[in-house]
Structures are given as structure tokens and as C-alpha cells.
Design a protein around this nucleic acid. Structure first.
Length: 510
RNA sequence: GGCCCCUUCGUCUAGCGGUUAGGACAGGAGAUUCUCAUUCUUCAAACAGGGGUUCGAUUCCCCUAGGGGCUACCA
């Protein structure tokens, strides 16, 4: 019979409240890519630890050996490195409560499960997967009682030894009390009460492969790791009652529960792939800044006051509090995230923006990484011009293509302004050719003045004079400011593109 | 089906008995502007319904409705 020492921390509630050192954890299971919803849970745990001067623990819940994936583990590290969220204890950094991989703690869970066996709080179950499947099927048709029928709960000693001797594989199930109810006080939800007979009937604690289920592992680890607050999504509320019973059975006092509102999709259902991107890498490759993502998801279920919406990571780390957490679910608004991202891009310095854009330009095949000196100069010059035009970093290739590679000839539609004819466009381009003389010796303001004068002289709107030039030079009717763009493109390319456009217009008008 | 949780503009939210119910995103209109953006101004938009408690309910309680979650040898 193992002894379960728990370090120095007393179980005295008042003692805990007065000088409790906050210890929180994020416990992902490496079975897939980090989901934006779970990451918000992680962030809240992290922020709570920082705000209280507590400790943030990363624990890998890899007890499902069938779904485990090493890629998913890498994704956990990558995701939080990108987000700038770090942990004080975890598999990679170590700590006094390790190991932090649950798969390396199997003996611990087994010992604890067995202690429950001998204290009568648990029992061995020999039901086969087939029987359980049949049972489920029958129950689905009758739509009455759900879950395990507790057959092995009342096995006689004879039957038990017979099954044991036959070598039949078994699991250990928790003996949920049939009577009474369990209550826990949730920081966000208040008192949550549940009759014991409504709790999942005798859930499996230890699987037949010797690994624990979530219920056992998380209770044992949270206790052994001296976790003081459990911040997790509200989908866990139903099983929290079970966990409370487990703590009782072990003779431990449970941590403070704090069930966070869920993150939903537009249709009000749990956020999933059909709503759009949900894994954090998706947001990263879609061109979001990690600061924007962190800022936005921090506001999903939490608000500091009635007006502040921009928070640096440092501000979040001091201002976050459980008291200001919301209880109702939040819909993930991609539009608002995009707005945040645009705002964060605008707040970048020119060189920061260039550095942020380079990977996206590289993927598009427009620059090397690092870029050539020539490209770097162009990028530095164009940064201030595109900064307020980008919502996503992935918009950069399209916006900058005309500066970094050859362009497809613009369509006649783009070349000829609305409410104008091809002849007008031709006139505009020919005029522009003339105005290009000395262009690079003048400032943008001076050039603009010259174009203005020309448009008056030609009795043409300035826009009608500039649009054909814009289309000819950038290949699009949408571009950064024209004069700055021409300056960055250089005289030779600008002239070549304009004269090419003139030729095409001439063909079209003949 | 059973159990649990939730309910302020379309969305994120402020509000913690007495407010013209505030802000932001999105949307509409306008101004600025070489396109697109940015920026600015402005408009529209909410307390789910019904009972209580109270001098007074968005706020406290109950019911109803609606929504969501859970109901695995997954977490």
C-alpha cells in the first residue's frame, strides 16, 4: 500500500486561502493541432499565474496511446512559443513535480487505482468491449438509462475469483455512490449541485492497457502537483462532480474550480473546423500576428472594463483576474480578429513589418530569405506605404508583387477608368511619359502638383489621369500610393510598363 | 431521452436596484483621398417571455422558452 504524501501544503482551507501560492496548469493531450479554444484556456491559466505571481505548469496528457501523435506534441511547443506563452514547469523545462508526461506516471495511477480498490471505492470490471457496445446499442433504442449497467459492481467473490483466474482482462471502475449528491463551488458558476445517481455510472479509472483515463489521471496529478486552481472549459462541468467524488474517495480536498465559458462558432455550436480555421497554426499561416491573436482571444469571456480593448501581453499579465471572467459562451468573430490584426500591423515599425512579411513573400516566391540587398531596400521603402493597407501578412505578396517580379499585363478594363474611354487612357499614359522626365529628382508632392496641373490642362479628372498609369505600372486598379510606388519601381521598369500599355491601348483603339 | 450550464445590440462586451442602457467589431450614410486602405463624423441596433420581491428592476428569486454542453477502456 503506497503512501501519498503531498508535500508541505496543508489541507486547511483557511490556510490555503490566506497564503496559497497559485499553481495552475494547462494539460493538453497530444492528439491533434492546438485548437484556438483550448489555447484560450491555456492563456487564461498562464495569465492567472502571472497576475498572481503563481506557477504555470504544462502537463502532457498522453494517456490515450492510440491517438497519440508526436507531431501534435511538437505543435504544442511551436504554438506556445509563437504565442509567447511560457510555462514554469513542464516536460521540456522540468520542475519539482515531474515527470510531466502522464505516460511516464503510469505506476502512480495504477497504485492510486489499487488503493481505491482496497478502500472499496473502486472495483474491477471484466465486461468486454463487445458487451459494452451491445449495451449502448440497446440503450440507444430504449432511450432510458444511459451508460454502464454496473454489472461487475455486484459480482460475488466466487465470480470475481473465477473471472480473475480465467485471465480475462479487466478495467478498474469507480464505485459512484448511488445515494446523495455532490456539490462544488465554482468561482464562475457558483454552487453546482448534482445527484450522485445522475453522475456517469461507474466510469473507468484504469483502462485494460494499464493507462488511466482522464478522470483518474487529472485528479491524481492535480493533487500531487499541488494545483490550486483548475481553469478549464465548461464542457468539463458534468465530470467535475465525479472528480469531486474522486477527491473525497482519496481523502483529498479538491482545488478551486473555475469553469471557463466555451468558445463557439457563428452558429452557436462548439467552434470546429467547419466554422473556419481553428488550429493556431492555421492562423499563423493565414498571416495573423501572435500579438493580435493573444489580444483577441483574451477578450473571449473576459473584459477588463467597458472600453479598453488593446492590451499588450505585459498588461494582460498584470490586469487579468478571475473576477472579471464571464459565464456565458462567446462566439469567435473572425472579422473582429481581422480588425485587431490590421491594427497590430499598423502599430508595427517599418522594419518589424518587413521582417514579418518576408516569410510570406518567400512562400510566394517573390524574395529569398533573407532577401537580397536590393529587395531589402524596396521592402523598407514600401513598408510605410502598405502598412495601413494590410489586414493579414498574407496580403503582402499580392500587394507587393509588382515591385518584386514581372507583372501580367493589366486588363483593358483596369487600364481604362470608369466613365472614360480608351482614348482618354491613351492620352493619360502619353502625358505620364512626359511627366516622368525629372520625376525622380522631385518629391512626391512636387510630382503630384505636376500631375494635377496636367489634369487641369487636359480637362481630365486627376483620377482619370492616374488610373491608367496605376494599372500600367502596378498591373492592378488597386495599389499603394502611385508616386511612391513608381519611385520604388525605378524609372526603367516604369517606362517599359507604360509604353507596353500604350501599345496595347493603341491596338485596342484601332 | 436524462443531467448540468447559459441568456444585454447580428457579434464581443460594460452594467453589480434608480443610467438618455455605454464601448468595440460588423453594417448603413457622409467627410478626407490619386485607387484601395487609413482616419474622422454620423445613423441604425439589445436587456428572451411571464410571474414575484421592492417605492423602484437589465440588475435579486421562481417558472417557461430558447441555446449549449455532457452522457466512451477520448480528453
Amino acid at each position: 500500500m503506497p503512501t501519498f504524501s503531498r508535500g508541505t501544503n496543508s489541507d486547511d482551507a483557511s490556510f490555503q486561502e490566506v497564503c496559497m501560492n497559485v499553481r495552475v496548469r494547462y494539460a493538453p493531450s497530444p492528439t491533434g493541432l492546438q485548437h484556438i479554444g483550448s489555447v484560450r484556456t491555456a492563456l487564461f491559466n498562464y495569465l492567472y499565474a502571472r497576475a498572481t505571481g503563481g506557477t504555470f505548469v504544462l502537463r502532457i496528457e498522453d494517456t490515450d496511446r492510440e491517438r497519440f501523435s508526436p507531431d501534435a506534441l511538437d505543435d504544442i511547443y511551436d504554438t506556445f512559443r509563437w504565442l509567447g506563452v511560457s510555462w514554469d514547469e513542464g516536460p521540456d523545462v522540468g520542475g519539482p513535480y515531474g515527470p510531466y508526461f502522464q505516460s511516464q506516471r503510469a505506476d502512480l495511477y495504477r497504485a492510486h487505482a489499487e488503493s481505491l480498490l482496497s478502500s472499496g471505492h473502486a472495483y474491477r470490471c471484466y465486461c468486454t468491449a463487445e458487451r459494452l457496445a451491445d449495451l449502448r446499442e440497446q440503450q440507444a433504442q430504449k432511450k432510458g438509462e444511459q451508460g454502464y449497467d454496473r454489472r461487475c459492481r455486484t459480482l460475488s467473490d466466487d465470480e470475481r475469483t473465477r473471472l480473475e483466474n480465467s485471465g480475462a482482462p479487466s478495467v478498474i471502475r469507480f464505485r459512484v455512490p448511488l445515494e446523495g449528491s455532490s456539490v462544488f463551488e465554482d468561482t464562475i458558476l457558483g454552487a453546482v449541485k448534482r445527484k450522485n445517481r445522475d453522475i456517469n455510472p461507474d466510469p473507468v479509472l484504469l483502462k485494460s492497457d494499464g493507462f488511466p483515463t482522464y478522470h483518474l489521471a487529472n485528479v491524481v496529478d492535480d493533487h500531487l502537483m499541488e494545483i490550486t486552481h483548475i481553469l478549464r472549459a465548461q464542457e468539463w462541468v458534468p465530470s467535475a462532480s465525479l472528480h469531486v467524488l474522486l477527491y473525497e474517495a482519496f481523502g483529498w480536498s479538491p482545488p478551486v474550480f473555475c469553469h471557463l465559458p466555451m468558445v463557439m462558432g457563428k452558429d452557436g455550436k462548439k467552434l470546429s473546423k467547419r466554422h473556419g480555421s481553428t488550429s493556431v497554426v492555421d492562423f499563423r499561416t493565414a498571416g495573423y500576428l501572435s500579438d493580435a491573436v493573444v489580444n483577441y482571444i483574451a477578450l473571449l469571456g473576459w473584459a477588463f472594463d467597458d472600453k479598453t480593448e488593446f492590451f499588450t501581453r505585459e498588461e494582460l499579465e498584470t490586469k487579468f483576474s478571475i473576477e472579471r471572467l464571464n459565464k456565458s459562451p462567446a462566439v469567435f468573430d473572425y472579422k473582429k480578429l481581422e480588425w485587431f490584426n490590421g491594427a497590430y500591423i499598423r502599430a508595427l515599425s517599418d522594419t518589424e513589418l518587413v521582417d514579418a512579411m518576408i516569410p510570406f513573400l518567400e512562400i510566394a516566391g517573390l524574395v529569398t530569405n533573407p532577401p537580397s540587398a536590393e529587395h531589402r531596400e524596396v521592402l523598407d521603402g514600401v513598408a510605410p506605404l502598405v502598412k495601413e493597407r494590410l489586414k493579414l501578412l498574407s496580403d503582402a505578396p499580392e500587394a507587393l508583387r509588382f515591385l518584386l517580379s514581372e507583372i501580367d499585363p493589366p486588363s483593358l478594363e483596369d487600364l481604362v477608368p470608369k466613365k472614360a474611354g480608351p482614348k482618354d487612357a491613351l492620352v493619360a499614359l502619353q502625358e505620364a511619359e512626359k511627366l516622368l522626365d525629372g520625376f525622380f529628382d522631385r518629391t512626391d508632392e512636387q510630382n503630384e502638383e505636376r500631375f494635377r496641373e496636367a489634369s487641369e490642362r487636359l480637362e481630365m479628372k486627376l483620377g482619370h489621369l492616374l488610373m491608367p498609369v496605376r494599372a500600367a505600372v502596378t498591373g492592378s486598379s488597386v495599389s499603394p500610393p502611385l508616386f511612391g510606388s513608381i519611385r520604388l519601381l525605378g524609372e526603367a521598369k516604369t517606362r517599359a510598363r507604360i509604353s507596353e500599355a500604350i501599345d496595347r491601348l493603341k491596338e485596342a483603339t484601332e
